Simulated assay, not measured.
Amino acid sequence: MTGVFRAACGAALTLASILAPAPVVAANSTNAFLVAQYPVTAPPGSKGLCANYAWACASDRAASPSGPADLALARSVNSSVNRKTRQIEDQQQYGQAERWALPTTRGGDCEDIVLLKKMKLMQAGVASSNLLIATVLDRKNSSHAVLVMRTDRGDLVLDSLNSRIVHWTDTGYTFLKMQNPASLGSWYAVLAGHMLKDRPTASR
């Protein structure tokens, strides 16, 4: 990796835009796994994702959480992709604000890097339903995307800003949306993490 990509990655996201569709059912920040709350629209840049990359939306509902072998593989893939992929904004590369695609020879932004990691792990045999794309607000409340790996240790995060894989509760991020594990072509609000950890639970 040629340097840490500090610019906001992806279209601007706000908590208000996520909370608007329905009352919040806040997830407990101590949960091992991120919990889907209710259906939401897919992130703007993901339009056409399933058509262009069918594997990114292919579900394997029978899969059990990934174990130590998959995690060791994920550590290698995460570190390698971060090191080798130059980070470049979509506006600079495509002339548009947001476009989810595999990195080109020029590189890619956070969503592109997530896709590359997911593809490499699937090619190595990791179940697709254990590899969930998620949109978050990072520690500076900037838009970002990460790959959530569902393991027997809980949900772990592969991040283009960090070559260490950590539990989602240790990222300091606010998790907004995530692919539905049962149907990867759809998205759910998860609403958990840093900015929501003390938010009271509301009934729907």
Rank of each mutant, 00 (worst) to 15 (best):
F5L: 10
F5K: 13
A11F: 07
A12V: 09
L15T: 03
L15P: 00
A16L: 07
S17Q: 14
A20P: 08
P21Y: 04
V24H: 01
V25W: 05
V25C: 08
A26P: 00
A27L: 11
A32R: 09
L34T: 08
V35C: 05
A36G: 13
A36T: 11
A36H: 00
Q37G: 11
Y38K: 01
P39K: 08
A42E: 15
G45D: 01
S46A: 10
L49Q: 07
A56Q: 03
A58H: 01
A58N: 07
A63E: 00
P65D: 04
P68N: 05
D70N: 12
N78S: 14
S79Q: 15
S80H: 14
V81F: 03
Q91V: 13
A97G: 08
E98W: 05
R99M: 12
R99H: 11
W100M: 06
W100H: 06
A101P: 02
R106E: 13
G107W: 09
D109Q: 14
C110E: 08
V114P: 09
V126Q: 05
S129C: 07
N130V: 14
L132S: 04
L132M: 06
V136E: 01
V136D: 02
L137A: 03
R139E: 13
R139A: 06
K140Y: 15
K140E: 14
S142Q: 12
H144N: 10
V146W: 10
V146G: 02
V146K: 03
R150G: 11
